[in-house]
Amino acid sequence: MKPFFNPTIWQQEWKEYGDGAAIRMKRSGIDPATAFNSKAQKFNEQSFNEEGRRRSARIVNWLASRGVKFEGASILDVGAASGVFTVPFAERGARVTAFESSPPQVELLKENTARFTENKVEIVSGEFEQIDIEAKGWNEAFDLVFVSMCPVVHDWDSVERILSCARQFAYISMPVSSAESSLVSEVVPLITGEKFQPKITEMAFLLHLLCLNGYAYETLVTRELKTTEFTPEEALEHAMIWLSHHNLPADDRSRSIVKQHIRQNYPADRVQIHEGGRFGKVLIRLQEQNMYVEE
């Protein structure tokens, strides 16, 4: 059998892939489980402002359009953050178990879900990889397992772990290409002499292995952007971390170039950056595997 059709080879290739989100974080000295500790408040504000709510609504509405029922459903939200999807799920009548590893995010999650008293949101903290699925009673326990842009998905073993918790549906979203930043796109040519080129990421492994392993699924690839305001100091650090994540020069010379660029091209107190890229959304059907037609 040719390697293209051999799932074992692809599983091993993904396991050895050296440029995944979790690996890039670790390469920059960041623990994926606590990566958002310092950004929790800003991320929470972005999640629940008008733009953030619209982003969440588009995804929830897409799931609903594909036959996912929320009223009375049991949902496991892995990487729940401060409740960006937990809240709209609960608002639609779902019973949500929200899993989050970052302590500051957990505190915000508690605040944002405190109003749900009839269907109380259960919050579980820790590292998802360390959870005993059987002991928790999570094996095929949830109508929907929802994992959005979370580094717990880093190889096929982690995908199977997620699928083991699902009864009807599993949703996984990941970048299709490396993330983009307007500031980084501006400074990379100044640093390297070449235009910043996004790279195809782990989503290709996920889709191919779902196909080879016989799963029924629907996928959607879109381009999404969000706007964030930083102080000049925050923008500088943002750019340096971004360069490091993408294995680009993040030395003193680069820092000097970025600092000068910000000073010359942005207001003294506020730097507006557009972030985003191409993102893939996959809905895996574990029960009714025929083509869904909305009635």
Rank of each mutant, 00 (worst) to 15 (best):
W62Y: 10
E295D: 13
M149E: 14
D251C: 06
G83L: 06
V152D: 01
Q272S: 14
D251Y: 10
W242V: 01
V147L: 09
A239Y: 05
E234C: 02
S256M: 06
E202H: 13
S148Q: 14
T231E: 03
G280A: 10
N61P: 00
P32F: 05
D157S: 13
R54L: 11
E233C: 00
A22K: 10
G137S: 09
F279E: 10
S74F: 02
H274S: 12
K226G: 12
Y292L: 08
G83Q: 07
E294N: 12
I273R: 05
E294V: 08
K39G: 02
V87Y: 03
A204E: 13
E118I: 06
L76I: 05
G137E: 09
R255Y: 04
G52M: 03
R167A: 12
H261T: 10
I284V: 12
G276Q: 06
V188L: 09
S56R: 02
L183K: 10
F85W: 08
K42Y: 00
G93R: 01
K195I: 12
E186C: 11
I162S: 06
H245W: 15
E127I: 15
L207C: 05
H154I: 04
K120I: 01
P267R: 07
Y217S: 09
S28Y: 01
V152R: 02
E71P: 00
S173V: 11
W10C: 03
I200G: 00
E129M: 08
D31I: 03
P189V: 12
E71L: 13
P151M: 09
G52V: 02
F5D: 14
D143T: 04
S256H: 06
S182M: 10
N213T: 14
E129T: 12
T201A: 07
E237A: 07
S158F: 11
D155S: 13
K259N: 11
N265Q: 10
Y266E: 07
N44R: 02
H208R: 15
